[in-house]
């Protein structure tokens, strides 16, 4: 779930904008086609295959998450700098008239909004949140293993092609169970991912990290994460985190009243930022797809 590792500028970085199969939008978004789109699919298919090893059920979720649900995680106080809201105009005739008769778009490309409808949703900031909302109030008779890929939205101060985007693809494999079940799940996948890095010779280090809290020194959650690390990032040699392993303890179980064996459920996830994996592949193996590892064998 984290995108907190800083990018290093000390090494030569491959710029995907030189590739015909790549398109970059200054708003922090990427377009892929041809070999890059194929790579995107192969990487995600590999993650799906990994997910199937714990019989994880796959879900497809919508783009919006209820703000009311997200507030149960204190999200708006912890991450106000990242959040992106879907906004729409108040549908009252006079409001729409004011909008159309004003200057809907100025020369800078800025939309001049009139009154807005109340905002009750948020664009998905992390893929796994959907699961805790989905399983809210349930008592789990057995651990649940689930997976989803979501387009996630995080507003940043600056954007870099494939490395730091306003929206990006996140694949997560999640376990909700008791503490031992979740720890075993995270341990198994940490080993699996590490073995993969070694086999394809992708230089990745595992580094303890914290979530990118707003005003961290004032946030006790940041202090708690620093003193009891629950997030380990897969940091590519350039300093870019391409994924993470996260132990949430019973944080989501408590917030959403999910029970396992009559106690608040524990949860953990393995998260992969797919565009960042493409970035790592391009930097390590070059733009020629014949040089890329054959992911079908993993």
């Amino acid at each position: 779930m984290s995108k907190s590792a800083p990018e290093s500028t000390s090494e030569a970085i491959f710029d995907p904008r030189v590739l015909p199969d790549y398109g970059w939008y200054e708003s922090g978004q990427s377009a892929l086609s041809g070999s890059l789109l194929e790579l995107y699919r192969r990487i995600d298919n590999m993650f799906l295959k990994w997910a199937s090893e714990c019989q994880a059920a796959e879900f497809f979720f919508p783009t919006f998450i209820s703000a009311r649900e997200l507030a149960k995680l204190d999200y708006f106080r912890s991450f106000p700098h990242l959040v992106t809201f879907p906004a729409s105009l108040d549908a009252a005739d006079d409001n729409l008239k004011r909008f159309t008769e004003g200057t809907p778009l100025d020369q800078e490309g800025c939309v001049h909004l009139t009154a807005l409808d109340p905002v009750r949703n948020v664009l998905t900031p992390a893929a796994c949140y959907h699961f805790y909302i989905l399983f809210q109030g349930q008592a789990l008779a057995e651990p649940r293993y689930v997976t989803t890929r979501a387009t996630c939205f995080r507003r940043e101060t600056h954007y870099l092609p494939l490395q730091r985007q306003w929206n990006f693809s996140m694949r997560e494999i999640v376990c909700i169970g008791n503490s031992d079940e979740v720890k075993a799940f995270l341990g198994r996948y940490t080993e699996k991912v590490q073995a993969f890095f070694e086999r394809i010779h992708l230089p990745v280090n595992w580094v303890n990290a914290t979530d990118p809290f707003f005003n961290p020194s004032k946030n006790p959650k940041f202090l708690a994460q620093r003193l009891d690390p629950v997030k380990t990032e897969m940091v590519f040699r350039t300093g870019l985190a391409i994924g993470s392993v996260n132990f949430h303890r019973n944080y989501f179980g408590e917030a959403f009243q999910i029970q396992r064996q009559e106690q608040e459920a524990f949860s953990g996830c393995v998260a992969f930022g797919i565009e960042r994996w493409i970035f790592a592949f391009l930097n390590e193996f070059g733009p020629d797809q014949k040089q890329w590892p054959d992911l079908n064998t993993f």
């Binding site: 503490s179 006790p220 959650k221 202090l223 009891d228």
Partner: peptide, 12 residues
């Protein structure tokens, strides 16, 4: 901490 017997808010 791991079992969240003491929450992050109580850590202070």
């Amino acid at each position: 901490i791991e079992r969240r017997i003491i929450s992050s808010l109580q850590l202070t």
